[in-house]
Design a protein around this nucleic acid. Structure first.
Lengths: 146, 146
DNA sequence: GGCATATAGTTGTTTGTGCAACTAATCAAA
DNA sequence: TTTGATTAGTTGCACAAACAACTATATGCC
């Protein structure tokens, strides 16, 4: 049993994602405090559209590790908030291409700063080389399981 | 900006908890495959009751980092599944003490083995000393934000 | 061309989460 | 001892996730 090195409480934390839950809650509070009516999940979709808009819902599924119904509903809600628009693809009429509204473009910088701020608060007391190891381990975990 | 060391994709992974999501999904699949009708969230409540039963819902809130309504509903569903029982406290009639049924005691070992197995799969290729650093960093993150 | 299959997206259902508002019981202080 | 504050738990609402079943479009093969 090569890696069975978990005391019980630690096993629990790894599975439930205590740390990332705490990070997401903190960021959500920052959104709320600044009057942004936006969930972390909605933000995570915008995050990928800021990198590249005009991608399909399926591509958003792959980017965000969600299934198709989840993305359908997130895009529904983002459309209601007037943050994205569905545009039917010319080439393939099954596909919706998702575009940002001007309003969504406006909140990019503000929310990315809050995200960076949150991570800085989270990692304030952690030496950079340990953060590096942690990032690496989490990536391997994901690759091992996906 | 001492710890602003996140490339964009990494920032995303930290906030969304890609790794712990993958772990939880894998464990849920193991539950389903073995015919266990149990969610990871329900399991996480049982987890603390296996350590000590007869605690209050409020204590379960603290142990699992959930708010009171979440615990109310998880306990509701665990009661429906005949895995726990609410027992009114003699000393303080506001309090429900939560006890395990025989059925819940039976699945402890089986599910804990599946959880360990899942973590072993997740960390198969990771040297133990890196796992240690990762655990430590995640704990500090939680402490910094809680 | 026509039929089977695959792909993109939607809808329904169950479960869980976070917030606010609520009830009931307890405690504390005048 | 009565009144005000605190604590434990519940309920309602909006949002999200996972799964299954569904529609519509596209593709591939004969």
């Amino acid at each position: 049993m090569p890696n069975n090195q978990f005391k019980k409480g630690e096993l629990y934390s790894f599975i439930t994602g205590k740390a990332s839950t705490a990070i997401a809650r903190r960021l959500q509070k920052k959104f709320n405090m600044s009057g942004l009516n936006l969930t972390i999940e909605q933000w995570s979709v915008l995050y990928h559209l800021w990198k590249q808009e005009g991608i399909s819902q399926q591509e958003l599924c792959n980017a965000t590790f969600r299934d198709k119904p989840s993305i359908t509903r997130l895009v529904d809600n983002l459309e209601k908030l007037n943050l994205v628009k569905r545009v039917a693809s010319q080439n393939d009429r099954r596909i919706n291409l998702i575009y940002l509204t001007r309003q969504a473009q406006k909140i990019q910088e503000q929310t990315m700063l809050m995200a960076e701020e949150t991570l800085n608060e989270a990692l304030e007391t952690v030496p950079p080389e340990k953060v590096e190891v942690c990032k690496e381990v989490l990536q391997v975990v994901y690759d091992n399981l996906k």
